[in-house]
Write a protein that binds this DNA or RNA. Structure first.
Length: 936
RNA sequence: GGGCGGGUAGCUCAGCGGUAGAGCGCUGGCCUUACAAGCCGGAUGUCGCAGGUUCGAAACCUGUCCCGCCCACCA
């Protein structure tokens, strides 16, 4: 295969689709449950994306991380299972379909439960697979044949089993209490699904309750209360003051009159609820619509007066306000209070507002009967398992967050008033009210009285089934081969935003049902945000679809997707503010390809909480992918017939061949360490640096003169080492950039034992290279000398087409021998006229410019080419810098505290450096005279 | 109100006890037969601020100012 057969630039799109199909066809991603397969397992569960979802940067992030981990382990010979799945996403999915119905002028109630569910399934079959296809575009090597949907029949069975067991064990119960109500979705929410909006500018409204039978001589005859939700006063059943507040002592045991319906409500004393220093020191108490007041009501046995319908309108208890929507009711109540002369003013007030994570509407606390899971008994083992190290976190500061949440956990409200989801397996007797919880699909008669029963209408919180994921996907509650082999899993990788929602719940459920932690490590990545650090959101028009990066897209279409309802110009302006670097990108994203996007995401330190996506950075990594492609394309022209074995690297005698094998050992070791330690940035960085700065910039350049004018023996050795180096480098890079590496690897000479795909080839280890300090030291000298010569050329504007005469001098005979040996290489890289002259130090020839590189003096003859003024400038500038460094070093070395306290190797390094500087300075000072010579 | 993370080159970020790093951007010279998505050079930082510990601090400690996130029932 010669290089002319490959196009000059790498075209990602075509190659990526082709290789993914190839991997699928060869079952490369398949995990094995064969009893004869003795390989160690490596298991990762993919966080199941919502079935309604389409790929966003968060998916791309975890998809990349997990794919790197999984491909690495697969190449290391593990039996890898990356378990993929899709989540039914209760509220989100139901909302999507209900919105469709609305367009047809219908509600789900018009269809009825069964028909509605049929409709959702239909939608799921049609549109629900999109996210899976998109994960594949990214290159995710999950075992797609094992794809699970959280509502699959076997998942339903697992969920029901879990529910029944928890119920039987007394950990699931039904209770009536104040819960968070989403009036838009018309369902209860768990505490976690309520998002607190901070720093909302609200108002504190004050009004007066007249005291019944007030005695004006003893003090106030009314109590002024303050509230941010005036309409809740319709449900007030008490007014509270602090027991020790002298202002109100005379009112203890008295009552106030409700201004609208004339009810008399008690004045209670409560030291918990009331802070006498806040406001008027009087608090209205609405037990049915406020969490504090609910608790207060319990302490004082107050009635709980519910004033709200489930749709957020005021109910009959609200009297004249019945039927009003809650915010309209607020206005009406205020108006009425003003008319009655009870309004006492309004103050601006900074407050927090609880909003539903799903619908965004303000959450109403209401009293309702729901199903709960008792958390304390589940949380304790989950805390213990992290404390004793059975499960570890990376980065580990997240342990604190995890602990804090579990230590203060409240019971989990798991019922939802939705239709789409796992139905609660409980049956209510229509006659005696007895509740039967059963594993069966249906129940014919009440187990207590034999009357008809009706199944509980509610479904479970989506996260309930997610919590069972690591074992429900393996066939639990059956004792399957998969469960035996793949539980617990090894790494749980996800964004830190779902530590509570998912990670903690899997820990609790896994420990409870399996008696063992569900995973050994929790790897938490940061959130992908825009280039200025803002969270990606619709209103900011700063969301980027990873597919637009992979396949390319005009900014017009990018922003239209992000902010569909705004004018393009406005959306575009917002978008460009969020991504300053796109200003240099013209009209849109080019097709970066999946590899470039993956490598970019791998290059961010996973311990940072925010990952500010920079499109220009992706461009840099696309260039790298192209670099890989071209380097291999070039190498292909010279490696034909290479003889490779998997017993180790080819034998090398030439310094650059030994050197690249030594660097290779370091690089592949760093790559594996980076991946193992969840430092993908370090792993990918090591390979990037190796490939570009060492393999391409130095090694490939050094092989060129060998292939054009080396001896046959030199050519053969270099051919084999080069072939080995690129084959190994491709394997090392594969987890990060799977597509381009497969594309090239298939064409590269490789040992006969290699499998059908690079994805199954062994991941390289140190043994694929050959550590060689002597070769590294020698190459270091050569690189320094060549660099110095190039700098001289460049600073004197010598065009690359002009060849120069080069002299290299050293007092060290061994070094001279090296330079002599490599004179052909040096000549090629510096572009000299003939081979450089290597000699012992001697008087400087007239008309040449000198630079000192370590212990080598580099002289470039420039008579006729040189510009004396520039040279003078260069000398003075360099001397100034040397002088500065020397001052610092001398100061340190003359300080006895330093020389006696610092470790010897540090002192020694400083001394050597000082010597080198002194030497360089001396030589350069001599050079000052040169400028005059050059003018001759 | 509690907790956590961050403030390092113009931008996005590594470094976390031994004389400041990367990518992009900037800049000089090059279409040198793998790659102009490239090559060879170059410039760029009182490492948020103030104290302290140390022979030595961007890194450790204390305080302080900004920015962000999470948790929490102050009406």
């Amino acid at each position: 295969m010669s290089m002319s057969e490959l196009p000059k630039s790498y075209e990602a799109a075509e190659a990526e689709a082709r290789w993914f199909a190839f991997w699928a066809e060869h079952g490369v991603f398949r995990a094995s449950v064969e009893p004869s397969d003795r390989r160690k397992t490596y298991v990762v569960s993919m966080p199941p994306p919502n079935v309604t979802g389409s790929l966003h940067m968060g998916h791309a992030m975890f998809g990349t991380i997990q794919d790197v981990l999984v491909r690495h382990k697969r190449m290391q010979g593990f039996n890898v299972l990356w378990q993929p799945g899709v989540d039914h996403a209760g509220i989100a999915t139901q909302t999507v379909v209900e919105r469709q119905l609305k367009r047809e002028g219908k509600t789900r109630h018009d269809l009825g439960r069964e028909a509605f569910l049929a409709r959702v399934w239909e939608w799921k079959e049609k549109s629900g697979g999109r996210i899976v296809e998109q994960m594949k575009v990214l290159g995710c090597s999950a075992d797609w044949e094992r794809l699970k949907f959280t509502l699959d029949a076997d998942m339903q069975r697992a969920v029901r089993e879990a529910f029944v067991r928890l119920y039987e064990d007394g950990l699931i119960y039904r209770a009536t209490r104040l819960v968070n109500w989403d009036v838009a979705a018309q369902t209860v929410l768990s505490d976690l699904e309520v998002e607190i909006e901070e720093n909302v500018q609200g108002e504190l409204y004050e009004f007066a309750y007249p005291v019944v039978d007030a005695d004006a001589s003893k003090g106030a005859t009314e109590l002024v209360v303050a509230t941010t939700r005036p309409e809740t006063m319709l449900g007030d059943t008490a007014v509270a003051v602090h027991p020790d507040d002298p202002r109100y002592t005379h009112l203890h045991r008295k009552k106030v009159r409700h201004p609208f319906d004339g009810r008399e409500i008690p004045i209670v004393t409560d030291g918990v609820l009331v802070d006498p220093k806040f406001g008027t020191g009087v608090v209205k108490v609405t037990p049915a619509h406020d969490f504090n007041d609910f608790a207060t009501g319990k302490r004082h046995s107050l009635p709980e007066l519910n004033i709200m319908n489930l749709d957020g309108t005021i109910n009959a208890a609200g009297g004249e306000f019945a039927g009003l929507e809650r915010f309209a009711a607020r206005k009406a109540v205020k108006k009425r209070l003003a008319e009655l002369g009870l309004e006492r003013g309004t103050k601006p007030h900074q407050m927090t507002l609880p909003r539903s994570q799903r619908s965004g509407t303000v959450v109403e606390p209401i009293i309702s009967t729901q199903w709960f899971v008792k958390m304390k008994p589940l949380a304790e083992p989950a805390l213990a398992a992290v404390k004793d190290g059975r499960t570890t976190f990376l980065p580990e500061d997240w342990v604190k967050t995890y602990n804090h949440w579990l230590e203060n956990i409240d019971d989990w409200c798991i019922s939802r008033q939705l239709w789409w989801g796992h139905r609660i397996p409980a049956f209510h007797c229509t006659k005696c009210g007895h509740v039967t919880v059963t594993r069966e699909d249906t129940l014919a008669k009440c187990e207590k009285c034999g009357s008809d029963v009706a199944q509980d209408p509610d479904v479970l919180d989506t996260w309930f089934s997610s919590g069972l994921w690591p074992f429900s996907t393996m066939g639990w509650p059956d004792k399957t081969a998969a469960l035996e082999r793949f539980y617990p899993s090894d790494d749980m990788s996800t964004g830190y935003d779902i530590i509570f929602f998912w990670v903690a719940r899997m820990m609790m459920m896994g420990l409870y049902f399996m008696g063992e932690v569900p995973f050994r490590r929790v790897l938490l990545n940061g959130l992908v945000v825009d280039e200025t650090g803002e969270k990606m959101s619709k209103t900011k028009a700063n969301s980027i679809d990873p597919l637009d990066l992979i396949h390319g897209a005009d900014f017009d279409s990018v922003v239209q997707k992000a902010l569909p309802d705004a004018p393009i110009a406005e959306a575009l302006a917002k978008f460009k503010r969020a991504y300053p670097s796109v200003a240099q990108l013209g009209k849109g994203f080019p097709a970066y390809g999946a590899d470039a996007v993956r490598l970019t995401l791998s290059s961010y330190s996973p311990q940072s909480r925010r990952i500010a996506l920079s499109p220009k950075r992706i461009e840099g990594y696309r260039h790298f992918c192209n670099k890989i492609y071209n380097a291999v394309r070039f190498a292909l022209g010279n490696v034909e017939g290479a003889e490779l074995s998997d017993a180790g690297p080819p034998k090398a005698t030439l310094v650059y061949n030994r050197w690249i094998l030594s660097r290779l050992a370091t690089a592949v070791e760093a790559a594996s360490a980076g991946i193992d330690d969840f430092r993908l940035d370090e792993g990918s960085g090591a390979l990037y640096h190796f490939f570009w700065d060492e393999l391409c910039a130095w090694y490939l350049e050094l092989t060129k003169p060998v292939f054009t004018s080396g001896t046959e023996e030199e050519r053969r050795e270099t051919r084999d080492v080069l072939a080995h180096a690129i084959e190994t480098a491709l394997r090392a890079l594969h987890p990060f950039v799977p597509f381009v590496t497969e594309e090239l690897w298939q064409r590269v000479p490789r040992p006969a034992s290699r499998p059908v795909s690079i994805a199954l080839a062994p991941y390289p280890t140190r043994a694929d290279g050959n550590a060689d300090d002597a070769a590294e030291a020698d190459m270091g000298q050569l690189m320094l000398a060549i660099g110095a010569a190039r700098t001289i050329r460049s600073e004197h504007d010598v065009p690359p087409s002009s060849k120069v005469h080069l002299r290299l001098r050293s007092a060290d005979p061994a070094l001279r021998a090296l330079l002599e040996r490599e004179s052909r290489s040096i000549a090629a890289l510096v572009r000299t006229e003939g081979d450089p002259v290597v000699e012992a130090p001697a008087p400087r020839p007239r008309g040449s410019v000198l630079s000192v590189a370590g212990s080598i003096e580099v002289l470039v003859e420039l008579r006729g080419l040189v510009q004396p003024e520039k040279e003078a400038e260069r000398i003075e500038r360099t001397l100034k810098k040397l002088e500065k460094d020397l001052t610092v070093l001398t100061k340190r070395l003359t300080d006895p505290k330093f020389t006696s306290n610092a470790p010897p190797e540090v002192v020694k390094a400083a001394e050597e450096q000082k010597q080198s500087i002194v030497h360089q300075r001396a030589r350069l000072e001599e050079e000052r005279g040169l400028v005059e010579e050059l003018k001759e």
